[in-house]
Nucleic acid binder design. Structure first.
Lengths: 210, 210
DNA sequence: CTCGAATGTGAGTATCGCTCAGATTATCGA
DNA sequence: TCGATAATCTGAGCGATACTCACATTCGAG
């Protein structure tokens, strides 16, 4: 069972039996990917996909049960690729230095991928549905980060103000991400995640920066 | 100008002039808040809000220009409240110990608020719109986290496997949050955020856990 | 070539955010 | 008290878009 077939079995309506079908499936995904990159998944219309792929609406729905399934298929393909990178990078690390080097490289690599993949950026940034709401959230993080940065500067007046502000903002933003993650788990695991985050960031706050 | 009036000026169509109007505005927000808590903002219909608030669709649109404005108003109210907590907690911290204690308390407090506020949980977790997609992302984070945890265990075989797995998962998840944040900034600031994150997490990886 | 299965088609349906022209109610000067 | 004007309310209907379905077409095995 190929990766294609596995994906199809998961999200597509039926596995393509004929050659032409497989080509159409690829066309659909290519067109969808292009549309998402250009206009965002929210603005992508099913009728537009059908038009650009040169098929009818009805046919499109033979391949994918709904719009979300197209997006999920693209996401799963992308994840499959990036998983390989992660495995390769971490496969045979030796010693702490090796791990740290591999991890650092992986983060940089992931960032480059994010920069280069508008489709994934669109899909994974759930907030794209409402930019004004996203802006409100960011403003809130910035405000809270500024308060935290001010407190940090009072403790260590010699710190670089800009870097302190940047770090405080990031800490707060990641705190919110942790909260969202934690509440989706049960109480015990959620609390453990919050504790982990606290330990990580407390250590960061305790370290002088200049 | 009250807080109410300020919010109304920002997102509502007009400031309520009559007493009954103000009551209706509150009713609308209360009903919306309840609906979001019960079904999620995505499933909340404008017609349903109007029905439950005992007003017509047209009247509802006199108070808020669109659906998103209702959600934003709820979010801004919540942010105003939580901002006060943050200010109070960080206002007069003295010394590093004071900062760390205040910060720890704040994180815990925030977590409790998140647990108790289904409305905010829904609004801020952008992924709510597509639970299946959110599940795919989480599965990916778990897989990547498992690879990272395995590498960590190879370096330090004495570590507690469960805690290592939990930490690795959190690190990866927060890495993705950092990427999403960084790409929304310009290249210089984005790279700085990624570097900050790397520094924070590399230090975490270098610390033995047991 | 024939027939059944696979695949394709697009007009039509359902849903939902949102509008607008007209009805209703409040306010206030005379 | 009353008439006029402004504020507010109403809900049928519009526009957009995801999705369905009854029927047509194409493919491939025998």
């Amino acid at each position: 069972m190929s990766e294609e077939a596995a994906i199809a079995a998961t999200v597509a309506r039926r596995a393509p039996a004929q050659q032409r079908s497989r080509e159409r499936l690829e066309r659909i995904l290519a067109v969808a990917s292009d549309l998402i990159a250009r206009k965002g998944s929210d603005q992508m219309k099913m009728s537009e996909i059908a038009d650009l792929a040169g098929i009818s609406i009805g046919s499109l729905y033979q391949y994918f049960p709904d719009k979300s399934a197209i997006i999920r298929t693209l996401a799963e393909r992308f994840n499959g690729e990036s998983r390989k990178c992660i495995e390769a990078a971490l496969a045979d690390v030796r010693g702490l230095d090796g791990l740290l080097a591999a991890y650092s490289g992986l983060v940089d690599q992931y960032y480059q991928i994010f920069l280069a993949e508008p489709v994934m950026r669109d899909i994974w940034s759930g907030m794209q549905v409402d930019r004004q709401l996203a802006e409100i959230e960011l403003a809130e993080s910035r405000a809270a980060g500024a308060l935290l940065a001010a407190a940090m500067m009072r403790i260590r007046p010699d710190s670089d103000p800009e870097r302190t502000a940047s770090t405080a903002f990031l800490i707060w933003h990641l705190g919110e991400a942790t909260m969202r993650l934690a509440v989706s788990y049960d109480a015990v695991e959620g609390a453990a995640l919050v504790d982990d985050f606290k330990r990580m960031t407390v250590r960061e706050l305790a370290t002088p920066r200049d």
